[in-house]
Design a protein around this nucleic acid. Structure first.
Lengths: 117, 117
DNA sequence: AACGATAGTTACATCCATGTAAGTTCCTTA
DNA sequence: TAAGGAACTTACATGGATGTAACTATCGTT
C-alpha cells in the first residue's frame, strides 16, 4: 500500500476522483469511439447530460490534458474535441472496467436483490 | 420525474458509479493488499474515512458481492472482511488505473496549472 | 426584422454523498 | 460499580455536484 497514502492529500486519489464523476468516463469513451467530435455531436451521443455539465466536464478534462479543444473562428461557432495522447493512454484502463462491468453486472444485480429483501 | 435517472437506465453506468464514490476503490485495494481484515484494521489503514462511511461502503460492496462479511458471535463483536472472487477479478483493473494515475499525475498537475492562470 | 444555428455563460435551485456526534449492545475486567 | 471495547446505528448537518432555465454573440437566411 505505498501507492495510496492513507493520510493527507493524495494526488492519486485526486486524479482518480476526477474520473469518478458522472460524465467524464462516458465522454472519454465516446471520443475514443468516434474520434474528433463537435460539442453538439457529443451532446447528441450522450443525450441525458445537460449542456452545462457537458461544458463543465469538457473543461475539466481539457484542464487535465486528457482532451484537446479546438475553436474555429466561424459563425456559427465550431468547436472540436479529441483525445490527447494522455487521454488515449487512459482508454484501455477505462475499457477494462467497462468490460468487467459488462461481464459482472448480471451477477451483481442478482447479488443486490439477495442483500435487500 | 421529468428525466430518467441515468443510472436507472444503463447497468454499466450503474455498476461503475458505485466504484466512483469516495472510498470503494480504496477499500478494495486495501483488502487486496492485506487479505482478511477486521473493521478496525481497515479503519486504521484508511485513517480519514468516518466510521459511518466505512460501514456504508462495506455494506454496498457486500451487497454487490465484491467483499464477504463474516460475523463472529463474540463479545466484543468481531467482524472480518475479505474480497470475494468477483472482487478479486476487479482488482487488476483498479490497479491499472492507479498505475496510470501514478505515471500521469505529475504531468496532469502541470497541465492544471497552465489552464488556471 | 425576425429567426435559426452553435457553443456556450450565468444565476439560481436541489439533491445526494459525506460528515459529525451521540447512542446502543453485551460481556469482561478492574 | 463502573468503565472499556468492537462494530455498529440513528439523527441531523453540510457542501459540492448536478440540474434548470434564461440569456449571450454573430451572421446568413427567410
Amino acid at each position: 500500500m505505498k501507492n495510496f497514502h492513507p493520510t493527507g492529500n493524495c494526488p492519486v486519489r485526486d486524479v482518480l476522483s476526477r474520473l469518478g464523476d458522472k460524465w467524464s468516463m462516458l465522454v472519454l469513451i465516446t471520443l475514443s469511439a468516434n474520434g474528433t467530435m463537435r460539442f453538439s455531436d457529443i451532446h447528441k451521443t450522450i443525450a441525458d447530460v445537460s449542456q452545462r455539465m457537458l461544458t463543465v466536464t469538457l473543461r475539466t478534462l481539457e484542464s487535465d490534458g486528457l482532451i484537446e479543444r479546438k475553436v474555429y473562428a466561424e459563425v456559427p461557432p465550431r468547436v472540436e474535441y479529441c483525445l490527447t495522447e494522455r487521454g488515449s493512454s487512459l482508454i484501455p484502463h477505462i475499457q477494462g472496467l467497462v468490460d468487467w462491468a459488462l461481464q459482472q453486472m448480471s451477477g451483481i444485480m442478482k447479488s443486490r436483490v439477495l442483500h435487500t429483501p
